Simulated assay, not measured.
Amino acid sequence: MMDDSKPEECKVCFINYDEELQRPRTLPCGHTFCSQCIKDSVKNVQLICPSCRAVHSATAATQFPINYGMEALIKKFRNMQVTSVGSESPKSGQDHTRGIGKKLQSMVQEQKSSISNLISECEEVLSQLGKYQGQVRDWKTQHHQLQDKLYDLVEQNKAAIELLEQEDTSVVTMSTEGEAGKKQLQTMLECLDAVTTIQEVDTTCDEADQYSVQAEDWIRKCQELFPNFSIAGTSVKLQENIKKALDMMTRETVTTDVPVLLKYSDFTIMEKVEKITGDIPL
């Protein structure tokens, strides 16, 4: 069994969690490990939980959510350790201010309080920036995945165009043959109108039968060849997919204007991110 006595460290690599490679991420089974270990464990589009051996579909560590609760708990735990160490140090501050007046002591304490508050605010903003960085990187990953899909769609479109070029060439060839056959049949009609002897009738009818057979073969061949169901089906389906993709890209449902209340407000960075992502259909 894995040791749970040190919640601040990954149970696989035993390295303390941080806000970079060792960010804690939670698997669907509920167990948490660092991003690097999850990344190293993804094999063959799946990941086996090191704790309960549950199998999860996975291609990258970033698809699993960051355990912000764990990060907050670790941060609180570390702050408690720092506070504990500070309380055991010599009371140099008290000794230093013992020789000054009460008014000056009050000024010093007020300044210390102000600085402490600023430090806390800095830590909170740094924490928010760390979370936001994770979100930004997730967005980048999603954009790369979408870009790959778009490239794949473009390649499919190129292949479809090549197939349609071949089909067009086949149609031109068969049309040329058909025009020639039609002219031959028209010539036979003129010849049949001009026959005057039994021999001419026999000869002309034989030729007419020959051209008629060729025309019938041409008609049957056209019916068999066209349309090429594979090429036509691929073209129609691909056009539908591309039109849908373009429609989603050009649809004016997203505004780039940032609400004034979000620019200057008491919302945290991640609260503003949640507001933005909540208003934009991803």
Rank of each mutant, 00 (worst) to 15 (best):
Q128S: 05
K243E: 14
Q133N: 13
T250G: 05
Y68D: 10
L118S: 15
T32G: 03
C191V: 03
H31F: 09
M80V: 06
A245F: 10
G93Y: 14
M188T: 05
C222R: 07
V260W: 05
D18K: 00
C49H: 04
S116Q: 09
K149C: 00
D95K: 14
E274C: 13
I48S: 09
M107A: 11
T26M: 15
D279I: 03
C191K: 10
V42L: 09
G30Y: 07
C29R: 03
H143A: 12
P259T: 03
E8N: 04
A159T: 14
K112Y: 06
F77T: 08
E252T: 10
C52Q: 05
P227Q: 04
T204H: 05
G86K: 06
E224G: 04
T187L: 15
Q111I: 08
C52W: 02
G134V: 00
V136D: 01
V125Y: 12
M270H: 02
T187N: 09
T250D: 07
E165N: 12
T253N: 11
Q214E: 11
T203N: 12
V154E: 13
V154K: 13
D209R: 15
R220Q: 06
V12D: 08
I280W: 00
L261W: 14
Y211L: 05
D95V: 07
E177Y: 13
W139F: 09
Q63E: 09
V213C: 15
Q111A: 11
Y211G: 04
L47R: 06
I231V: 15
S92T: 13
I119L: 14
Q184Y: 02
K103F: 07
F64Y: 07
E155D: 13
V236F: 12
L238H: 12
Q63F: 02
V213K: 15
S170W: 06
K75V: 05
I219Y: 00
Q135C: 11
E71Q: 15
S57M: 08
Q109G: 10
P281V: 04
E200P: 07
E207F: 07
I219N: 04
K6G: 03
F77P: 01
S170N: 15
I66F: 01
I269Y: 00
E20I: 10
V55A: 10
D217M: 15
N241R: 15
E19A: 02
V254K: 08
I231R: 01
D202Y: 06
S127Y: 07
G233M: 14
I276Y: 05
D206C: 12
L192W: 06
T62C: 12
R137Q: 15
E19F: 10
V260Q: 06
